[in-house]
Design a protein around this nucleic acid. Sequence first.
DNA 1: TTGAAATAAATTGTGCACAATTTAAATGTG
DNA 2: CACATTTAAATTGTGCACAATTTATTTCAA
Lengths: 154, 154
Amino acid sequence: MNDLLALDNQICFSLYAANRAITARYRPLLAGLELTYPQYLVMLVLWERAQAGQATRVSDLGARLRLDSGTLTPLLKRLAMRGLVRRERSVEDERVVTLSLTRQGEELRELAERVPHKLLCGLNIAPERLLALRNELNALLSVIETPAGKEPSA
Amino acid sequence: MNDLLALDNQICFSLYAANRAITARYRPLLAGLELTYPQYLVMLVLWERAQAGQATRVSDLGARLRLDSGTLTPLLKRLAMRGLVRRERSVEDERVVTLSLTRQGEELRELAERVPHKLLCGLNIAPERLLALRNELNALLSVIETPAGKEPSA
DNA sequence: TTGAAATAAATTGTGCACAATTTAAATGTG
DNA sequence: CACATTTAAATTGTGCACAATTTATTTCAA
């Protein structure tokens, strides 16, 4: 029987295992920055937006990373406690919390710059292949996130 | 600058986001079985091995799913509490815990059989494309898990 | 055979994810 | 204005992941 239920036939398991394996590869590199992997992703967004001169609210982070305040609030508190990030209630709208980088948070970027290269070096896989995989994953992601019934805008 | 640090350029983020998005798609389907996604993966292995007449130890599960006892022990206790799984100390080697399915655990398989098909239907993506993606992910996984310096056996 | 080393699970502690609820502020409507 | 609705973040509670340690058992060697 062409067993749909077999572990090996489930795309889900490949994704699950590959994601954890990649994360495990990042871990020792990020240990040097004293960042967890999700913290690293948050910092990436903050660095990117700061460079573009954009202010960042908790909900902006959430939209970019697909995470809610239940995940982000405690994570951001930890980053703030470490002195990397400032969390301030917006003056125009008291519901909003605005995030900004401290000097220390900005400076950490320089260390972080070396992480992607180090990761690639340790991976022994053709970069084009990774790029292709990334594109496929992004395509899958956009299909998943498109509400059912929606055709791709022609 | 060809910014290696940009979120969009990080394979890691695509994997992270795609994995969570797929998991989120499984969640409502698995809710009918009252299983979480990792519990579902554990049951897949147990069903598979039971069918092959193989006994399963906690460490077998761990090797297959790349999870350690810190994750598996509490998860298995929950499955046992629900009456799906039996956990028994092996008689030959008291260090080992052997897992087996209860009648109820075996029966749950029938409900689970429908999950993969339902998932695919809701996904609106060509199955061949998913297959190709799965193969790429498995290749990536095996590269990551191959200790550095090892050439693929020629 | 006794004690050291190895092995299998369990335990402890931290940090995500995510559902569900709560709190507080802003917006919209009669 | 008053009050229902919406919105943004925080809070609460559950269940993974995973590092580090512990406990119990087995194996191996002197």
